[in-house]
Amino acid sequence: MRISCPHCGERDLREYTYLGSAKLLDRPDGDAGAEAFYDYVYIRENPSGENAELWQHSSGCSAWLHVVRNVSTHEILSVKLASEAKA
């Protein structure tokens, strides 16, 4: 698997670190209540097709990336900076 970093170009998987679902960008407001935080911290849609994810180019430019990937084929569908992806 190779991911194209918007800053550095296409790089090997070894240069990246995976965090998890891109849903982590949408942290509920502090007063959203326990149910909303439970959902945020623990529940995952975990689809078998396209998954929106957070990766860091940790051995490169350190940028956090928003990556859409097909988790059944390992195909990378889109990559952008996480800072530009916040919903």
């Binding site: 698997m1 090997d12 998987l13 070894r14 995976y18 990937r69 988790v71 059944s72």
Partner: peptide
């Protein structure tokens, strides 16, 4: 492999 996957195969690293 440290990323979400439904593929029954992994990567080289």
């Amino acid at each position: 492999d440290m990323y979400n996957s439904y593929a029954q195969r992994g990567n080289l690293p």
